[in-house]
Design a protein around this nucleic acid. Structure first.
Lengths: 343, 343
DNA sequence: TGTTAGCACTCCCTACATGTGAGTGCTAAT
DNA sequence: ATTAGCACTCACATGTAGGGAGTGCTAACA
C-alpha cells in the first residue's frame, strides 16, 4: 500500500530520527544522497505518510518524527538484520571468557555488557524455577534453637531458610525428619512441594516426630521458594542520557517503575519464545510511554526459560539491539545448557 | 565564640532552609516568632556569620544558606534529638512484625521502610562475613559432571558454588572428600579458608583422593566467599524529588555512583561504630557534593557489624534521620542478635 | 553603644517583544 | 508528476523592562 518512494522516505526519516533525535524536515531529507527529489516532493509524500499515520509532527511547522504505528511498521517490515561489528562480538564473547559456573553471575554479566554496548537499560529475568524438581533437602543446625534448611533443585538452584527448632527435638529426630523429607519429596516439582508436604508428609511426620505440627509449618514455610524469578539490571542510569528524558517527571516515573520490580516483572514475563518488541503504549504502562522494550528468551536444555531484555526510548536502534539480543541469548542458551543440563 | 543571638539566628536559618530549600533573608527571618529584632540587626549578624564561614550567599543579593562548615557546626552543637512520632514508630515496628527469619529479608525491609519514612535513599550493608566461621561444607552432585558445593557459616550465611566433578571421582570418593573438608575446616574463619585449603587440606587430599589437584582448585574456588558484603538499597529514585537535584547532570552522576556499588561500599564501610555524619565534600566524592551521608552501625551479638545509612541532600533533616537510624539500628541489633547468636 | 529605619543598589526571575531558522502547505509553472 | 516559490507557523534564542527579595551602609535613636 505504500509506494517505493514513500517507503524510502519513511525509512530514511526513521533512521535519521533514531540517530539524531531531532524531527526531520523535507529540506534536510532532500540533501541526503539516497534521496534524489526535491523538498517539495518530499513534503507531499510526507503529508501522505502523515495521513496514513506513520509519521507525525511535534507542532504545526515542525519536521516529522515516526509515530508509534510508524515504528511498528518499521520493525515489522523494514528492519534489515544488522551485522555486528568486531568490537561488539568481542565484548559479547567476553561474557563467557572467564570460567564462571554460576548462573547468577553469568546472567548478571550479560546484563552489564548489554547495557554497555547499547547505552540502554538491560534487564535479565533469571530462568524459571517452577519447573525445577527438588534434588535434596538438608538441615544444618546452627545452635540449640536455630537451624537452616537448604533446598537444592535439580538444576542447581540453592535456597535456604532459617527456622527455629522446637525444644523437644534432638539430633536423632532431626535426622529422621530429613530422611522422611528427602524420601518423600525428592524429584517433586517445586510448585507442588507445599501441597505434598501437607498431604503425604504430614501423615508420616505425625507417626515419627513429636510436635510434628510446629515443624511441619516451619519446613513448609522454608519450602516456599519465591515464585518471582530474580531480575538483574544493567545500566539503569543510561536512560538519563537519552534526550527524550530531559524531562524530570518522565525520568522519575520511569525510575520508580524500574525500582518497583513487580511491574517490570509483569512486563517481561508474558513474552513468547524468541524476540518480542513492544513499542510505547503497547507496553500498557504509563511510565513506558516513550519507551520500547525488546525481549528475547533463552533456554536451558529444552524447557527452562529465562528472558533477556533491553529497555530504551521508542527511538531505539532496533536493528542493532535485536542482533545483540539474538546473539547473546543463543550464547547464553548454549552455555547454560552445557552447564546445567539435567542428566 | 558565637553569641547567643548569632546562634539563634544561625539555627533558625538552618532549620528554615532545611524545610524550604530556599535561601533565607533577613526580612523573612525577622517575621518569625522566635526572633524579636529587626531585619537590619539580623543583617548585621548575618554578615558576621558569613565572615565566620557558617553561612553563604548564592549570589550577591540573595538570602543566606548554610555552608558545609555551617552544617557541620549545626550537627555537632545544635542538634536536639527529636522525638519520633507515633506514625514513625509504628512503621518502624512493622519491620519486625512479621516473623521473618532471614537476615537478607529483614535488612532489605529495613532499607525500604527507612527510605519511605525519610524520602531519602537508604543503604544497608549486610553484616560482615569475614569473621564468620565455617560451620559445614556439603557437596551435592547434580549429575555425572556437575556438583554443588554448599558452604554454611556459623551465623547462618549460606553460599553455594557449582563445579565440575572429575570423571575419575565416584560417590565413595566424594564422601571421603566431604569428610576431610569438614574435619579440617569447620570452625575455621572464612578469611583463612583458602590458606588452610592449600596447606593442611592439600596434603590430606593427596593421600586419599585421585586427581586431587583439580578438585583442590575447584573447592578452593568455591570457598571464595565474596569479601564485599551485600548492599541493599531503598528509595533510589527519591533523590529525584529533591529540589537540589533539578539539574540533570547532578542526578546522573549521583545515579551512576549509586549504580556502581563499589564507591558506595567504600563510602559506607569505613565508618566507626555508632552514628557517623559526612557532609558534602567530607565524603570525598564529587558526585556527593550536595549530599550528606549518615551512617549507623548495627551488630549481631558483640562483634559482627553491619551498617545502615541514609543518603540525602546536605539540606537534610539531620535530627529526624538520626533518630530514625538510632531506633532502627538498635532494633535490628537486638532482633538479629536474638536470631543469629552463636551458641 | 547597640539597634533600627531608610535608602540605594544588586541580582534573579518573569514576562514580553522581536528576529531568525527550519519547517510547513499551497499554488502555479515546468 | 515534479518542482520552484511564497506566505505562514512555530520553537528558540536574545534582548529589555519591571518587580521582588535580598544586601550593605549610614544616620538617627534609645
Amino acid at each position: 500500500m505504500l509506494t517505493d518512494r514513500q517507503l524510502l522516505i519513511f525509512q530514511v526519516i526513521v533512521d535519521d530520527f533514531i540517530q539524531s533525535a531531532q524531527p526531520v524536515g523535507s529540506r534536510s531529507l532532500s540533501k541526503k544522497d539516497k534521496i534524489a527529489f526535491s523538498s517539495a516532493t518530499i513534503r507531499n509524500e510526507m503529508a501522505d505518510l502523515e495521513e496514513l499515520g506513520f509519521i507525525e509532527k511535534t507542532h504545526t511547522s515542525s519536521g516529522r518524527i515516526p509515530s508509534e504505528r510508524g515504528y511498528r511498521y518499521y520493525v515489522d517490515h523494514l528492519l534489515s538484520p544488522q551485522q555486528l561489528n568486531h568490537h561488539d562480538v568481542h565484548k559479547l564473547k567476553s561474557v563467557f571468557a572467564e570460567r564462571i559456573f554460576e548462573l547468577e553471575k553469568i546472567v548478571q554479566k550479560s546484563a552489564k555488557i548489554l547495557s554497555e554496548l547499547t547505552n540502554y537499560t538491560s534487564i535479565v529475568l533469571g530462568p524459571a524455577v517452577k519447573e525445577n524438581k527438588l534434588k535434596k533437602i538438608q538441615i544444618v543446625p546452627l545452635n540449640n534453637q536455630t537451624a537452616i534448611a537448604i533446598i537444592i533443585t535439580d538444576s542447581g538452584l540453592v535456597e535456604n531458610r532459617m527456622f527455629q527448632i522446637p525444644e523437644s527435638m534432638d539430633a536423632n529426630e532431626l535426622e529422621k525428619l530429613v530422611n522422611i523429607l528427602n524420601d518423600r519429596l525428592s524429584g517433586v516439582p517445586i510448585e507442588s512441594l507445599n501441597d505434598k508436604m501437607y498431604k503425604e508428609v504430614a501423615i508420616l511426620l505425625r507417626q515419627h516426630i513429636n510436635n510434628y505440627d510446629y515443624i511441619l509449618h516451619s519446613i513448609a514455610d522454608s519450602l516456599k521458594i519465591p515464585v518471582h524469578e530474580k531480575l538483574f539490571f544493567g545500566g539503569k542510569s543510561n536512560m538519563l542520557s537519552q534526550p527524550e528524558f530531559h524531562d524530570l517527571d518522565k525520568i522519575k516515573s520511569l525510575m520508580e517503575m524500574i525500582e518497583q520490580e513487580d511491574s517490570i516483572y509483569d512486563l517481561i514475563r508474558k513474552n513468547k519464545t524468541g524476540i518480542n518488541i513492544k513499542i510505547g503504549k503497547e507496553n500498557n504502562n504509563s511510565a513506558m510511554e516513550n519507551c520500547s522494550l525488546i525481549t528475547a528468551t533463552y533456554s536451558i536444555g529444552t524447557e527452562q526459560l529465562g528472558t533477556i531484555a533491553i529497555l530504551g526510548p521508542t527511538r531505539m536502534e532496533y536493528s542493532r539491539v535485536i542482533s545483540l539480543l539474538n546473539y547473546i541469548s543463543s550464547d547464553l542458551s548454549s552455555v547454560l545448557t552445557k552447564l546445567y543440563q539435567r542428566n
